[in-house]
Design a binder for these strands. Structure first.
Length: 164
DNA sequence: CATGTGATTGTTAAG
DNA sequence: CTTAACAATCACATG
């Protein structure tokens, strides 16, 4: 659609630059963030985001979801997550754009929802700084006050899990 | 009991 | 543009 295709060559170069990323052993990312990045639970208040919009699954994941089913069905003996990942990845690359289309379509849809969540999330988190006249007042509160009656009713009790 | 780990690619957010 | 991290899953291992 948009003409310009001179990016072909550049793309390849970027790929090279990104290569190092592949070089590095993966699996380190999680290990590091495990330290306390996303968890950040620690004893401090980790409640940074009340509603954290989780990243929507990419086309690959959507495909994987179905692939996992099939893969497991034919290989019930395989219990390694990495096995499915590798197999799925290999097949995924083998698929044509046309086959990926349906998956990508779903991925595109996810963006719509994600964007919506982000909007709400955006309303609260961002911005910072600037001492100028930043006044953040939540007016939405007056909108819905709801009675706390229903909330403090039985839900709290349910939280208790006697069985351990 | 809870949590991390391993492996895949894609997308998103930030620098 | 480039970099880094996370998204789901399941059995296993460790604290």
């Amino acid at each position: 659609m948009k003409g310009g295709k001179g990016k072909g060559a550049l793309r390849k170069e970027t790929r090279s630059a990104l290569k190092p990323v592949e070089d590095r052993k993966i699996g380190k990312r999680k290990a590091t963030l495990k330290d306390d990045k996303r968890k950040a639970k620690k004893d401090k208040k980790a409640k940074k985001d009340p509603n954290k919009p989780k990243r929507p699954p990419s086309a690959f994941f959507v495909f994987l979801e179905e692939f996992r089913k099939t893969f497991k069905k034919e290989n019930p003996n395989v219990k390694a997550v990495s096995a499915v990942g590798k197999a799925g990845g290999e097949k995924w690359k083998s698929m044509s754009a046309a086959e990926k289309a349906p998956y990508e379509a779903k991925a595109a849809k996810r963006k719509s929802e994600y964007e919506k969540l982000m909007n709400a999330y955006n309303n609260k988190q961002p911005e910072s700084s600037d001492d100028d006249g930043e006044k953040e007042e939540s007016e939405r509160s007056k909108s819905e006050v709801h009675d706390e009656d229903a909330e403090g009713s039985g839900q709290v009790l349910l939280f208790f899990s006697p069985i351990k």
